[in-house]
Amino acid sequence: MANAMLIDESRCMACRGCQVACKQWNDNPAEETHNWGSYENPPELSAITWTKIKFTEKKEGDEVKWLFLKQGCMHCTEASCEAVCPTGAISHQGQYVLVDQEWCIGCGYCVAACPFDAIHSIFESEDGGEQKATARKCVFCVDRTTNDLPPACVKTCPANALGWGDRDAMLAKAKERVGVLQASGFPKANLYGEHELGGLHRLYVLVDRPSAYGLPDAPKHATSTVGAQWLSGIVTAGVVAAVPFWLLFKRQRAKEASEGGEGQ
């Protein structure tokens, strides 16, 4: 039985209790920020900000919509971070995708590979500089959730927009909610995460297209084309690059041979 987090964005009111509850439980310090013309801060997830609300404003005719997205690690079934991790420090433990902090070397590859920008390895040091460390991200509060406590963010949600439990049960609940929303003026309501990347363990009820929230409509596994990429490199080396060499130096050789012949 795999658990999943259900995030009903039609209920989220962006109070950001989840954002701070995550820091509180996981003892993550604050980031120094400035207002950049948005309620949203920190501007991005980071090694010390594992979940946050992304604010998106959208005008639909005369009406304005304010969309909130609770960002964080999706614990993908087909996890890009796990695939690209060179040391195997990132692994599935049941549905959890976890980084072994004792084994991770902090190369940052997972950071680039994540389709959701959910994992990071840069820390701000006390003097304001940056330092690289092991990769950190949402762990679904694994110490809580394996001890029958809900994740800190789920527990704290005053809007009741978050749920935690058996994935099938969460899926059923999400689908029911999507149905209710579609019938009550949100024709674009949809469920995100059921099939993406083999099934996410964060399931979203959205009232608009995923991309309207800043989610990839079709998230892609980082190494889905890696074979073709290797091939591309090798073919380029072999065909595109070697061919001119072959032509030029063959010609030189031939010329040398003929010149040599003439000279002798």
């Binding site: 590859y109 680039a112 590979a113 890696v226 990429q229 490199g233 090798i234 080396a237 072999g238």
Partner: peptide
């Protein structure tokens, strides 16, 4: 050949 291909593949196998 693998080495020079790798420098590109490293980046393209990301998101």
């Amino acid at each position: 050949v693998l080495l020079i291909a790798y420098t590109g593949v490293l980046l393209s196998a990301t998101n």
